[in-house]
Amino acid sequence: MELQAVSAGSYPRIGDATGEQRLRYAYASFRSGELTVAALRQVEDEVAASILSEQIAAGLDLVTDGLVRWYDPISHMAQALMGIAPGPLRPYFDTGSEYRQALVRGPLLRTRALVADEYIFAAAQSTRPVRVVLTGPLTLARASVIETPAYPSLAILARSYAEILATEVGALVAAGAQHIQIDEPALASEPDLLELGAETLTPIAEAKGAAELALALFHGDPGRALPTLAALPIDVLAIDILHAPRAVEALIGAPPPQRLALGVVDATNVNSDDVESRARTLEPVLAGLGAGPHYLTSTGGLEHLPRASAHEKIISLARIRNAIVGSAGATA
C-alpha cells in the first residue's frame, strides 16, 4: 500500500520567537499605513515559502502554503466575490478561532481568482506537489447571512457558491493544480444537510478534470454521511479518526471506494502523538483499504496550535508513515 504524509491545510504563520513574527509586524505596519498592500503581500509570500520548506524538511509528501494569507476560511473566499459585504465575527466550529460572516447583499459574481494565484506561487516554490484548499459551498452558505431576494434559500445560495467554486477549480486545473481539497466542516457537523452538500459537490467534481479532488470532513463525525459520500465523484475523503468514532466504525465496516486521508495526528492539542500508538490506531482502518495511494494527515489544519507544536506534529506525521510503510513507501 502506498501511504503518503500530507498537510491538512493551514499552518501557524507566526511563532513565539521574535524572528518568527515578521508577518505580524507587517500587518501592524499595514494598519498604521506604513506598509502598502503590495509590500504586505511580499511578506506573505516569504512566510508561505518558509512554511512550504518547513513541511518538506519534515518529510511531508504533499504540502500546502499553510493558508497564510487567509484571515479566515470564509472571508478569504468571500472577498473575491461581488455581492458580499463583511459581517461580524463568529466562532468557527470548535476551533477557538473565528470567521467573518458573509453578508450576501446581491447576486454573487467571482471577480478574481480565489486562490489560484496563491497556488501558482506555492507550486513555483515547492519541490513537492502542492495541495490547494478551498472552503466548500455548504460551509460558505452556512456562514452567510442572506440579505437579498436573489437567494431565497440556503440551498439556492449554496448552489451559487458551488458554481463559483467550480469555476475556481477549473482555473486551478488550468494553472496546473493536481491536488485540490474542499473543506466542508459543515457537512461533517450537520448530517441533515448531507443531500444538499452532496448536490453542491457535483459541479465542482465535474470541473476537476484529471486533478485529484479531496473532500475534508473535519470538525465533526461524518460517520452517517459516508454511505452517501461514497457515491460521489470524489477521489479522496479526509476524515478525523481520533475524534470521530462513528466514521472509524463505518470505515472499518464498509470502506468507501475513494482513497482516504486519515487524520491521525491531533490538531487540537499540543500533546505529543506517540508514533507506535497512532500506528496501532490506524491498523484496523488500513486493513480494509485498496492499494492507494492513501494519505496520513492531521485532524484538521494546524493553525490552532503554536508553531513549535505544529512543527512537531508534521514530524510525527512523517514518522507514523515511516513506521507503517517504511521510509521507502514515501514519495521519492
Binding site: 505580524r24 477557538g96 478561532s97 470567521y99 496550535l305 508553531r307
Partner: peptide, 15 residues
C-alpha cells in the same frame, strides 16, 4: 504558559 495561537486574521492569544 503556552504559545501564541491565531484567533482571526492577525489576532493571537497565548493558550
Amino acid at each position: 504558559p503556552g504559545g501564541l495561537v491565531r484567533i482571526y486574521g492577525d489576532r493571537y492569544r497565548r493558550k
